[in-house]
């Protein structure tokens, strides 16, 4: 396994574990009705977001150091054209995924906002009221989720190309 492939696996591991826990907790919290009308919702999840971001950075630094220590120097320094080409190709795929995810998110928010407005805030369901009162927090998290999912698509594509592609 080349240095680049090990590095991508490390990035996948950090992304899935650290951000996966954050978004599982957030979605579980919202779907279970928690935080629907909480005044401190934005502050609480803003704090958890920053904690998660710091955890992801620290985990990435540690794993990158371990991968570096386990790889010979010559292999680390190789500037491989095949790996570079696969990286660019994967990032292009990830970019398309990001566009689709952001477009879908925009559509969802637009539809939810329209529904909420049509029904009136008092008459809306609790889920729609959540979108109304904490819409910016949820929208921001949706954008972050879209970026992270797009990164995972790019990582997956790169790993596929490195292992099997041409």
């Amino acid at each position: 396994m080349s240095y680049r492939e090990k590095s991508v696996w490390a990035e996948v591991l950090v992304t899935v574990l650290v951000w996966g826990v954050y978004f599982l907790n957030l979605s579980g919290h919202v779907l279970n009705g928690g935080g629907l009308e909480e005044p401190g919702f934005a502050g609480a999840w803003g704090g958890r977001f920053v904690e998660t971001l710091i955890a992801a950075i620290i985990a990435q630094i540690i794993l990158t150091s371990i991968v570096g220590a386990l790889t010979p120097k010559a292999e680390r320094q190789a500037r491989d054209e095949r790996e570079r080409a696969y990286r660019w190709r994967s990032q292009a795929v990830g970019f398309h995924a990001l566009i689709i995810l952001l477009f879908s998110l925009g559509f969802f928010l637009f539809a939810a906002g329209g529904l909420t407005g049509a029904m009136g805030q008092e008459g809306g369901t609790p889920a729609l009221q959540t979108l109304t009162s904490n819409s910016l927090v949820l929208a921001a998290n949706g954008v972050v989720a879209a970026v992270i999912l797009a990164e995972l698509v790019a990582f997956s594509m790169e790993l596929f190309l490195l292992r099997r592609g041409r």
Binding site: M1, S2, A78, D80, E81, R82, L162, R166
Partner: peptide
Amino acid sequence: AEAIGMTRQTIAAMEQNRYSPSLEA
């Protein structure tokens, strides 16, 4: 691989005809 600044995996991919190198390589 070390002589041309690439990885061993890329040399293996070339030998298995799974990757065509650039003209420079």
